[in-house]
Amino acid sequence: MNKNLPLMSMFYLISLMGMISSNNWFMFWIFMEMNSLCFIPLMLIKKTKKGGEASLLYFIVQGISSMFLLMAMINEESSLMDVSEPNSSLITVAFLKMGAGVFFNWLFLLSFSITLSILLLILTLQKLSGFFLLLLSQAGLSYLMLIFIFLSSFMAMFINMKQNLFKSMLTVSSLSNTSWLLTAVVTTYSGWMFYFAVYSFSLVLSSTMNNKYLDQNYRNSDTLENPLLFLSMGGLPPMPGFFPKILILMNLSYSRLSLLSIFLLLAACVDIFIYLRFSFTSALKNNGNLMYCKAVTTKSIKMLSLSAVTMVTMMAIML
């Protein structure tokens, strides 16, 4: 274990706290830099073949985004947070940091060359900086935002058709979830929090699995967990991932954003189709060993009970 890990983790958390509690863009920029400077060494703790290249790529992306942030500040000629008119360049920075829409490709490329735990961090906590930016700039449902929401969901839908690696599937599903989160962050703050919590929880649960390879057509794992995770992230009703989605849809229907909700639902349907397709092959194709016995006796009972508990909790929250 690295000697500096506790210190770096502390600074990392401080940077997240600082970002959400800063009152001008300059402080935000400082904490953002701190964040990326803490995170890149974290990426390099475990030595992998492509780790250096990945950390470099991540550094470039973060550098570009902080440069844009500075440029936006200069354009505004003030570092104060202007509530009246959210700057579209700030929003673009947020998209770049999250890897939403057309900026997805750096995240996708990165996902092949980093370890699963770092990927999980990137997909959950590192996205927070982008969302904080959006929250602090009081971004509304502008055309830019709508375009990125549509682009995220549709790109996720199309890219998802061709994925067969576990990590890349996680990444692509994070893209589709990003579109939902973007919708939430501009319409309902509590819905966004709820969605983010449930999504992060599901992803962290997935880190208990050690499947490196997951084929859509052929299955070499013998547990029941992956389909459950993906169906939850796709938003199939009894799973925990369903409830934040329906909450956001309710909010959309209250604010009469029917077109947006239809697009989101369409993309979610295709996602669920894709997840169900490989769930069928994985659930129905047994490799001669007793799949369900093994599954039930090992980890997946934990997973099942966790998801059941989550579901009950969600129901309680809903009620």
Binding site: L57, I64, V102, F103, F104, N105, W106, F108, L109, M155, M157, F158, I159, N160, M161, K162, V270
Partner: peptide
């Protein structure tokens, strides 16, 4: 049609860094 569209989108995504810097 979805499969062919996904091939198209994938070609954009896998074009990766060149595309990214052009965008930048």
């Amino acid at each position: 049609s979805f499969t062919s569209a996904s091939v198209l989108v994938m070609s954009f995504v896998e074009w990766s860094l060149v595309y990214f810097f052009a965008l930048f």
